[in-house]
Each structure stands twice: as structure tokens, then as C-alpha cells.
Amino acid sequence: MQRLLEVKDLRTSFFTYAGEVKAVDGVSFHIDQGEAIGIVGESGCGKSVTVQTVMRLIPTPPGKIVGGSINFLGRDIVNISEKEMQSIRGKEMGMIFQDPMTSLNPVLTVGLQLTEVLKQHEGLSGQAANKRAIELLNLVGISNPESRLKQYPHQFSGGMRQRVMIAMALTCSPKLLIADEPTTALDVTIQAQILDLLRNLKEKINTSVILITHDLGIVADLCSRVIVMYGGKIVESGSIDDIYYHPQHPYTWGLLKSIPRLDATKKGRLVPIPGTPPDLLNPPNGCRFAPRCEHCMQVCTDQMPEYSPINDGHQVACWLQHPQAPKVAFEGRG
């Protein structure tokens, strides 16, 4: 498959009165044409900042890309001008934001907001733009699209607003669609519908999808690979089978143990991960998960682990992979 996006050693910081916040610190990953990958982790681990950096949406100041490259369709877009980026953003890359109610303009009709993108990037206007907007609303499963174009965001339910956001992201049939927690605050039925919609769109128009979430449970049905982030770094990455059935990092173990399971033989409460995420103003010298890890060794607090390949495509940054480390295996909830 064609390599669509390749991010290498990406570093994004926010320079505040208190100091430099290293929100993304040495992140590398790729996505191929027509592929779907998931980026998972707790709130504050750097997921959203990573993809916003890819879209060049980090406000400057206080944010700044301090290192690395973002190669999109064979071109490094880190240092291109904002005008050049505007020709890519929306046309070649689309993004679905977390909260559609705050992302949509409350004083403009849905039709105006959809056709604005078509006018900007496709040169469509009038009836042609309206016709395309109706097609997009049909594509995302909104009934009576002709009348819906004249309505305002507050006249839509939460799930329908999210569908409008997806339609806006798809106006120019982008090659890459980034979905930043698209199911947040939606009930489980609507969550399933949104994920089904993303899967169908990926299959119909061959769009690559990056799904951002804190919930490992919702990525298995859509994504082929998973990236686990913690403290601004990638701690483990691999295929769905690698992450779900052969996880190697204690943080991944913690995320998996916190997922409710209908087939669990052991009854009781979910197992939380103790402690809190690291302070990215002053991150630890060693593994950033060390203060919360029950298998922490002295070397974990002293030195950052290198990535260890487990198999083709599966790698983990953990000192437990060292030959002299104690042998520890993942024990699920049962």
C-alpha cells in the first residue's frame, strides 16, 4: 500500500510562564492509504496535540513544533506556509473534533457551513454547492437533507451534529480523516452508529482514518493497528491482535484491565491504574510510567527505555524486555 503519512520524531511544546510543556516528545508513526489506525491513552497523554500538530492547528504562540518531520504524500509539511497548509487542510486532510456543538457555528445554518468548504476548495457555489451538501448529508445518514440544510446546529441531536461534522470533514473527499474522540458524550447506540459510519466511509472512498480515543474497547472493530501513548510518548504499538492478545507494556495492561468484559469469569470492580499522569513541565528522566508501575525497577526511574521489537510491526518501550529483567506476563481480568 502507498505510504500516506509518516511522522518522525515529532516534538511539540507549549511555552508558558511556568516553563516548557513537552506535550509531544519524539513521536513516530505512519499510516498507509486506506488504512485505519487508533491512538489510545488517558486524557493528557498527547493524542490530540499529536494530530492537531499534523493538521498544523497548534496555536503559535504558545505552541510550537520544536523538532521532527511530518511527511504527507511525499512532502514535509512542517515548515510550509499557512497559505500552503490551507490548501491541504480540508481538501487533503479532514478532521472531526471532539464536541460538535462547540465546533459548529451556532448562528449559521448547517447548509452555509457545509457549502463554505465547497466554495473554498472546490469552487462550487449556488445550486451545485447545495446539491453536493445534500449528497454529503445523505452519505452520513441524515434524513430529509434538503430541509436540514436550512436548520441550525441546536436543532440537531448530539449524534446528528456529529454526523454533520463528519459530512463537513468529507466535503472534498480527503485522503486522510482524523477523528478526535468522535463518540465522546454519545450513548452507546449512537457510538456504534458513528463507528459503523466511519468504517463504511473508509471502505467506500478508501479514506485513511486516524481514530483518537481513550477507550481501547472501541478501536478493535475499526482499526488494523493501535498506538498506545503515555506522557507525550508512544509506549507500545502493534496490530490489533498484538495489543489485545499479546500486550507487553504495563500501561497497556492497565488500559485493558479497565475495559468492562461480558465474558469475564471474575466478578467485581474494574481495576484502575493508580496514581496520576506525569507533569510534562518537568517529566521524569526515566520511563514516564515508572511512578505508577507495579513492576518498576531502579533502571526504570533512571533511564528512558529504547523500543524493543517483539515481532514484525509490534514494538514496546519497556525495561521488562531486557534479558536480565524479571519475567512478568499480562494477567487479564479473567
Rank of each mutant, 00 (worst) to 15 (best):
P323H: 12
P283N: 08
D312P: 14
R11A: 05
M55N: 13
P106Q: 01
Q113F: 07
V49Y: 10
K257W: 12
A329T: 15
L256K: 02
L211W: 02
G111F: 11
K22I: 05
A179H: 04
E6K: 03
T53E: 13
G159M: 02
A185K: 08
G90L: 13
L139Q: 04
K91Y: 15
V164C: 09
H246F: 13
V7N: 00
Q120M: 15
L211I: 05
V7F: 03
T102D: 01
L10G: 02
L195A: 10
G254W: 08
L10K: 01
M297R: 10
E306C: 14
H246A: 10
S28C: 02
E203P: 09
C287K: 07
M85W: 13
P283L: 07
A18L: 12
Y245F: 10
G34S: 00
E331A: 13
A329G: 14
G41W: 03
L114Y: 03
P274R: 09
P284I: 04
A325F: 15
Q127L: 09
V21W: 04
T301R: 13
K257E: 09
V219F: 00
G94I: 04
G286F: 08
C287F: 06
L149E: 00
E82Y: 15
K83S: 14
L149V: 00
H246R: 09
K64H: 15
V188M: 05
